[in-house]
Nucleic acid binder design. Structure first.
Lengths: 253, 253
DNA sequence: TCCGTATATTACCCATGGGTAATAAATAGT
DNA sequence: ACTATTTATTACCCATGGGTAATATACGGA
């Protein structure tokens, strides 16, 4: 009725009777795009590799040219999301400002990530579906993200931009609220991902900020923490090749 | 042993039947306690009914004396958690106070629920594992919970205890943060569930409250929103019998 | 004591879906 | 064009685990 039609899936490099000569990495990424969408849509266990393949106009065994197995696909989806978060943290840390400034900056970007597929995969996939090695990698990455939030809060307390509080619990509270976005946000809604992100950034930090800015009431200052680039989900492929962890590049023969 | 029968005498031919039924319900609940723990520990799909049975020193088919199938067990676990939340909401709504008072009261109780198994089941189980009918029930219940948060916020804005804000987004932010507790809290940690709950209640409401109470700094006023009873996870059995929804009482023969 | 019911067990069925082997088709290099 | 390599397909294996049928056992009631 839908996915099997030759007219849907216009972005599949395997369109029948189409030139099948495309870079291997593009196909890999196409698999991941399809897989992450399906995993989110149906849940990892209900989603089958047959269905992933079907949506790409190929058959299941073809997937094994690019991945060792289902759990590796899951991990790679997660890894892409993780790289996006890492970029957020790196850029936020690189930029200046008070602890509160950084916290807000990270909050906005992280929130917006949670409204997109790869971001959602960070919070909706289950660690226990991964291999032991990959599970360790993910756990460490989660800790790094948590530390970023805590560090910014601690820094804010130190520089006086944030009220004294327990950084650990405050980070949990903020990150929890943001992570939950990945569970309820759906693109078709009334607010865009960007809008939700900016709203949340204000709401979640106003409680602990020392200066109670009324940024929300009118838009005289949109803030400098949200206008820069956020629009390159592509050209990330090269960066991934330098990823920190063992991520097999397809089946090694 | 309880109040299920006024006469513990042999002149009541109902006593044996009653005690039998009670024994049955106790076994039912034992299954649910074991199942919810296992589902949380391993995830619904990895957890097997064989393992549930094994932990109860019985075998898998014995479970089918009490439940129609795995997904019904999942639903019943969820239903118990939902009743606990319903009690929170009912009591909070019954009690007086400003919108902010009620919001805080609900926040404390809800947070503490999230630190226990049945509470966690509300946010960690996947709707899509349920039958269509049960899924509808759960969805409606989730909406009711969301509405409670929104109503209290709206009420608080109306009575001046809460700053003007979007009730919908604020409710999402608060509930999200609370729900996330169900994902990270583990009993063995440094803080008790109660302690986490009270911390969160303060942190999550201080941002939108008009009066910035410093409840956290010293304990001159512990607040009336946290001392009353919260300690009856038992004797809930009878209340469940009057539950709002089709919940089969074991296999009907 | 004997019957009927509730409850448990053993032994099975079988749909599902991840994964693999053998092989065919396309592509690149010479 | 011939060959090696990559990439896809068809046809299959099989472990897993939910669910069921047949049956045994415990127990209350007469």
């Amino acid at each position: 009725m839908d996915a099997s039609s030759p007219f849907s899936n216009q972005d599949s490099p395997w369109l029948p009777f189409e030139s099948r000569r495309r870079a291997r990495d593009e196909k890999r990424e196409a698999v991941l795009r399809t897989a992450v969408a399906l995993f989110l849509e149906q849940g990892y266990h209900r989603a089958t590799l047959n269905e992933v393949a079907k949506r790409l106009n190929i058959t299941k065994p073809a997937l094994y040219n690019y991945f060792r197995g289902k759990d590796e696909i899951l991990f790679e989806c997660w890894a892409i999301g993780n790289e996006l978060v890492d970029e957020c943290i790196a850029e936020t840390s690189a930029g200046g400002g008070t602890g509160l400034d950084k916290l807000r900056k990270l909050t906005v970007r992280y929130a917006e990530l949670m409204t997109a597929d790869y971001g959602k995969s960070l919070v909706r996939f289950d660690l226990r579906d991964l291999s032991d090695d990959n599970r360790k990698i993910v756990r460490n990455a989660k800790r790094r993200i948590d530390r970023a939030f805590r560090d910014y809060i601690a820094q804010g307390i130190a520089d006086g931009s944030i009220k004294p509080c327990d950084p650990k619990l405050s980070a949990f509270a903020i990150a929890g609220s943001l992570n939950w976005i990945g569970h309820w946000f759906q693109p078709g809604g009334a607010m865009s991902g960007r809008a939700v992100a900016e709203e949340f950034a204000i709401r979640l930090t106003e409680g602990i900020a020392t200066t109670s800015k009324k940024k929300a009431d009118k838009p005289p200052r949109t803030g400098n923490a949200s206008r820069e680039e956020t629009r390159e989900h592509h050209t990330r492929t090269a960066a991934r090749a330098a990823g920190q962890s063992k991520r097999a590049r397809g089946r090694l023969r």
